[in-house]
Design a protein around this nucleic acid. Structure first.
Lengths: 144, 144
DNA sequence: CATAACTGTAACAAGTTTAGTTACAAATTA
DNA sequence: TAATTTGTAACTAAACTTGTTACAGTTATG
């Protein structure tokens, strides 16, 4: 994935939408909860729209709501919607093809990338947005 | 982890050292295979030294070699030696504590970070540097 | 012991990425 | 028609990554 906080913020935003499934939520309201600029939220919602997780309406009384039930949205859906890159990067420069290791390491690293990615995806596939909301409520009720 | 290629390059470097366990290897030689600057390699080797994976010697006939057998070095050892951050970042700004979601989401995200990290670590723990070298050799012998 | 060959590391530059901001067109409601 | 809201482009600032130069310290060897 990356150093980016897009995944975290996406979960936050979608959890808010999940808690208020029946009404449209404005980017400005969401931004106040995330503590950022509304444009940052709208950009993120654009990615979530492309992944068919939310739908927005412009104009007065506009805003965004989920397209699916929280139980049907997995963290993998969210991860794929906002995560740009792999967990770790390959060589910035092509390794020396005259070296035995240099010539063959890239394929091996790509396979490793796949394995690590699969491990992450298997984990994320088993957690839904509804689960996240449950965890949030559990946290809210836990003694500090 | 990150967009960084440190993990990839570390595996490359250690694979080279593993293939020539009995002699010290110079940073300039390694750099030519990785196709980068020797200082980049020496910086990386510094991290690997702190993790007790390699040892270097200065001066004429200096260089670096492994401190352990390739079968005893796991990719998790390497990952921990060079990976600075988590797989995904939390909020850049503290969320609004007056919002129900904002107040409780961070703990939930931290728990999620732990789960994802564990998934990665379990995978990396089961692969050794010797396995990597085997994969490289297999790749070298495979028909193109 | 003088010299050449190494590593270790600081300091800096360039490129990329991320987050945040302003501005404004387009769409919608009333 | 006016007010409100999203979508998006353009820009800035900060952080991170890689690469580079420079040089002090260490070691082998003639």
């Amino acid at each position: 994935m990356a150093k980016s906080s897009q995944f975290s913020i996406a979960i936050h935003v979608l959890a808010m939408l999940a808690k208020n499934c029946d009404e449209r939520m404005k980017s400005e309201y969401i931004a106040k909860s995330v503590n950022t600029n509304p444009v940052v939220i709208r950009r993120l919602l654009g990615n979530l729209y492309e992944a068919n997780l939310v739908v927005s309406q412009t104009g007065v009384c506009g805003g965004t709501c989920l397209t699916q039930k929280p139980e049907d949205i997995t963290l993998l859906d969210i991860y794929r919607a906002v995560s740009s890159s792999e967990v770790f990067a390959l060589h910035p420069q092509m390794p020396n093809q005259n070296c035995f290791i240099g010539k063959n390491i890239q394929k091996v690293l790509e396979e490793l990338q796949d394995k690590v990615d699969s491990a992450i995806e298997e984990k994320l596939l088993r957690i839904t947005l509804a689960d996240v909301l449950k965890s949030v409520e559990k946290e809210a009720n836990s003694p500090k």
